[in-house]
């Protein structure tokens, strides 16, 4: 819980200090290996605020990933992992990023009495990383350290790399 408050305290000053000088809506689609979406995820990212003077912009992210596509009966029945997050980026072409993610997982498990069921859990993720984006529209790529507070109790070191397109 402490980490959650620390992250909020770190992100909150960005809203206070920065002077909003332009509304910008930019969209990105990217594929992430590892990261908060499990072993891999597809993500949509929307930049909704840009503070040009301070080279800061804010974006929201939603994504979905999985650990397994087939279940214990070897039938298509993927684990579902949904991730959403809020990110702050600083920089022009080379960006430093800081973010917080809320994750919901629905993992297919076996139980002798009910056989197949989905176990629902929520998790909290953090992100500190680097993004390279030379042009406003075009390729984006980056790496992230994404520690996760799994089940909101266990801390796990985790990381990600991603590549996508901004339009």
């Amino acid at each position: 819980m402490k980490i959650r408050y620390i992250l909020i305290l770190l992100i909150y000053p960005i809203f206070i200090i920065a002077q909003k000088d332009k509304h910008v809506i930019k969209h990105s689609i990217y594929l992430e290996a590892l990261g908060t979406g499990g072993y891999g995820s597809i993500n949509y990212d929307c930049t909704f605020l840009k503070f040009k003077k301070h080279k800061i912009y804010l974006s929201g992210r939603i994504g979905t990933g999985t650990n397994n596509f087939t279940d214990f009966e070897n039938k298509f029945n993927p684990d579902l992992i949904f991730t959403s997050g809020l990110y702050a980026f600083y920089g022009k072409n080379h960006h430093v990023e800081l973010g917080i993610n809320f994750i919901m997982s629905l993992i297919v498990q076996y139980n002798p009495s009910v056989r197949s069921y989905r176990k629902l859990n929520s998790h909290l993720g953090f992100s500190i990383g680097y993004r390279y984006q030379k042009h406003p529209k075009g390729l984006i790529t980056g790496i992230r350290y994404t520690p996760i507070l799994e089940f909101n109790t266990h801390f796990r070191h985790w990381a990600a790399a991603y590549i996508g397109y901004c339009f």
């Binding site: 072993y39 993992i107 859990n121 998790h123 799994e150």
Partner: peptide
């Protein structure tokens, strides 16, 4: 088990 991520087998 602690692995994989998000699962509790």
């Amino acid at each position: 088990y602690m692995n994989p991520l998000y699962a509790q087998y």
